[in-house]
Design a protein around this nucleic acid. Structure first.
Lengths: 232, 232
DNA sequence: CAGATTTCTTGATATTAATCAATGTTCTCC
DNA sequence: GGAGAACATTGATTAATATCAAGAAATCTG
């Protein structure tokens, strides 16, 4: 196993507080694996065998049902996914698919559960991580239930804008169909939502978005820190 | 403080594995309090001072925004709420309001965090609890994004039917406006959704619902264990 | 119990979002 | 560079949901 990325993993909130010994034990059975784009890593309903850490690339968390599918979240480096299923020794509630060529660290679920038995600092970090994840989903649910499609897009743009340096442009890291699914709308509707935002200073050119009048956009978006702020 | 309910609280998954000593410490600063119906217990944005345990009554978790409000969950005895905010020492993302006369155990947030430092078994129980809560919200989000209003109602009815003994009737424990908010629709739409379900053997008389042909309803609902099953 | 208040239902209409269909655009890869 | 595929946009239409308004039913209260 390539160890050059281990320090990055080790630096994650989730692993930072572990003893060296526990971390070494945890990595004992773990391994890195590369995947091409559009590979289904896990399917909802499968039993949770591994905890995944996205080290490179991008992974989409998907929910299926009613002959549809929707995107719940997009995971970027460096973050973990399907922690909750692993901890409960339960089946996955979401599927995961690579969006681009990705490198993932896979840690056997059993190792995680053992580490929790032995290392209280790790368990506490887990509590923080899960509490943060919980709050993240609550925010998504609030956004979905309280906002219209256009408002969801406007707020998403403002957050991305901030993330990318607030310099008046946003570059989409995912394609528009994925963004549409993430925001809970169809691709057609996303196009129309962008059209509506033209009146608020938004210009779209492929994956490059210009926010010429962010304050106008903010007026429409009615951002709410209890929905839009990242968990720290 | 009345101690007759402490065994019930102690029996909760969250507290069952604690040492007697930690539990005693935890209860040191805790107290029971009664509230009339329709009392706002906490408002979103407030800092998390207490962990709440619903011992009697019913509490509604609410999210606000865009001059609207929606119900995220209804908490019944015996369960805790706003655990995640307490653990992250963050502001609440949801408000809470009693639906009926309720008795709550209030545990200072600081005590919870201290107990976690000292009692690894408690921390592990916390992990399980949070992972379960996370999965619960994911299910709500899936329901909201993948299903129509009528489908959400149909599935809610089937779950309630099972909970209540699957004897062909369901009694609503909450009023219809609250149910509507929980299911992400307006009260008017809930009425119409019930109307639609008449064609599937549903008869509504106030808070009493008769499911005369559950199999028909199941046909419409297309239930999915990865959305509808309770976390165990 | 009567009156007042709240909740629920129903109908009419408006708004929002999804679907279907066609076309334009971008990307891929030989 | 060009053919083919995937992705994105646009328009027309339909479907789902919300809003507004009114009335009916249930409930609270003195």
């Amino acid at each position: 196993m390539r160890t050059e990325d281990l320090p990055t993993v080790r630096a994650l909130d989730l692993f930072a507080a572990m003893s060296d010994e526990s971390f070494a034990d945890l990595m004992q059975g773990a391994f890195f694996q590369r995947f091409p784009p559009q590979v289904m890593l896990i399917e909802e309903g499968d039993t949770a065998d591994f905890l995944y850490v996205v080290v490179e690339g991008m992974v989409e968390m998907i929910a299926q049902g009613n002959e549809r599918e929707t995107t719940i979240a997009v995971m970027e480096p460096v973050s973990t996914f399907i922690l909750a299923a692993v901890l409960r020794d339960a089946v996955y509630l979401m599927s995961a698919r690579t969006l681009e060529r990705s490198r993932l660290l896979m840690i056997p679920a059993e190792s995680i559960r053992e580490a929790m038995e032995r290392d209280p600092a790790f368990t506490r970090a887990m509590v923080r991580e899960l509490a943060g994840a919980f709050r993240g989903v609550i925010k998504s649910l609030k956004s979905q239930k309280l906002r219209s499609a256009v408002e969801r897009l406007a707020n998403w743009l403002l957050v991305a804008h901030d993330d990318q340096g607030a310099n008046g442009t946003v570059t989409l890291g995912i394609d528009k169909r994925t963004l549409a699914a993430l925001l809970g709308m169809t691709p057609e509707n996303l196009s129309r939502a962008f059209g509506t935002l033209r009146g608020y200073g938004i210009e779209v050119a492929g994956r490059e978005i210009v926010l010429s009048r962010p304050d106008d956009l903010r007026g429409l978006a009615k951002s709410n820190p209890l929905i839009d702020d990242r968990e720290t």
